[in-house]
Design a protein around this nucleic acid. Structure first.
Lengths: 259, 259
DNA sequence: AAATCCGCGATTGTATACAAAAAGGAGAAC
DNA sequence: GTTCTCCTTTTTGTATACAATCGCGGATTT
């Protein structure tokens, strides 16, 4: 690695950014602007979650910076954030941190799913205590999503990415409707990590989609009835069963991501 | 603010650090070494948690750097981490982040306590499923702590900081015994934030100490019986009641930390 | 041949320089 | 007196320079 940052960079980006400022004299034009650190975070997380960066891959700041054509500073920030959230792990050494993509193990998936289940369970509990109108609106959206999932579950071999998006949407609606800022933040940081397991074992998971759909029905009922205990319990069961299904798949296929 | 970093700094720190390296020819002497970013994180968190930095206080990177006699870089990292964990909030602006110490409100305390209750509840559930030996060892420690708390609850006006340390220890033992790395990390990031409320309303909270001690007994029983549901439920109730007690105090005293 | 030590390249941690951008205030126009 | 504008100051975001460390491999010794 010789010339790390083509010096054209500094002059290539800055004008583009400042052009935004003057063209419309509107007061707040934050549209379209994204800080480098956010770009780096988003791209890196995407690469990890989609499996394009294999578990165990060493993450070298300078390399990533070069690849994204930004400096080490924002890359470093993004990596630290990913480290705290669990996408990335620090390996050995006392003074230096040395990062790598976090491995995917049966043990970790169990803990992860339990945590998500409890966090979402809390969100569901709060949702079930909301006023009936809010709940009715949410229920409607949940039912629509789950109906489509149900169809895909019967016609085997639906588009995995479509299935994933629907399931993702179901849980997002669940949380966004009633959770406060802290709960939202935690969920946003943790939940996407389940996608790593999902993608790795997608085909096997899709086979069990019907079960998941039935569990979703129980969730919807709990919320509809305004029963916090039932709603929370149903959500936790959904994730717990998900963890069990995943564990079975991992057992039969072997740990694919444990370097 | 004129000369921000006395240039003596660079030459004042580096030799001190490298002196560590050579004096004993041992291979790994990571003892005592702490990166600036960790120092900054620890100090800042302490200042916020102990209330020495009032809610709403603007946090300016350069000022903190000057105060700690380090550069902005590690300060910035520490602030980002505190932001993600919830000790610090970003106020307005699209491109810049502008940080301030997070406010203390009744609403936030509710959400915080619910979350901690669920996280610890999960840890308690896992603990109750451990083998009896592990549980017996933990039970012993929990009982010792709670016994001392019980004494302090009866002799009113015990040392608040002692009481706090005991309660802190109780919950730490609870989590550290059975939780995996993810659960530990989340707990370590979130739980200390309850200390902010504790300190702000300490006297009133201590008045209700007896209730908390009784709730702890239920937790111990649940674990002792190896009953995951009971253990988790008891822990959640402890935190839920704690939130209610806190809410009453805030109602009667007013929100002290909501700038 | 195995073990050890030394040195060099690779990599992280910290400091600083610089470029925007937002906030705030002084002054002009009405 | 109010409001608008422009300028200054403060503050953040990014890039880069530098120092110290870590790991690895090769040379040397036994």
């Amino acid at each position: 690695m010789k010339s790390r940052h083509p010096s054209a960079l500094a002059s290539a980006r800055s004008p583009a950014a400042s052009r935004h400022r003057k063209s419309p004299p509107a007061k707040t034009v934050p549209t379209g602007y994204e800080r480098s650190v956010d770009v780096a975070y988003r791209k890196l997380r995407e690469l990890i979650v989609r499996g394009r960066l294999a578990p165990g891959t060493r993450l070298v700041e300078a390399d990533i910076a070069e690849r994204f054509e930004i400096s080490r500073t924002p890359v470093r920030s993004a990596l630290h954030r990913l480290l705290q959230e669990g996408y990335v792990m620090a390996v050995r050494s006392a003074r230096q941190s040395r990062l790598a993509v976090a491995p995917l193990t049966k043990e970790d998936s169990r803990e992860l799913y339990w945590i998500v289940g409890h966090i979402e369970g809390l969100a569901g509990r709060l949702l079930a205590r909301c006023d009936p109108q809010t709940r009715a609106r949410v229920i409607e959206r949940l039912k629509a999503i789950n109906a489509e999932l149900s169809v895909l579950a019967q016609t085997r071999h639906g588009d995995p990415s479509r299935i994933f998006d629907l399931d993702m949407g179901f849980h997002r609606v669940l949380v966004e409707s009633a959770a406060g800022p802290r709960l939202l933040a935690i969920h946003a940081a943790i939940k996407p990590q389940t996608e790593r397991y999902w993608r790795l074992y997608a085909s096997a998971i899709i086979d069990d989609l019907g079960e998941s759909v039935r569990e979703h029905v129980a969730i919807i009922e709990g919320i509809d009835n305004g029963d916090p205990d039932a709603a929370e319990q149903a959500i936790r069961i959904n994730w717990q069963r998900g963890a069990e299904r995943l564990a079975r798949v991992i057992d039969s296929l072997g740990e694919r991501g444990s370097w």
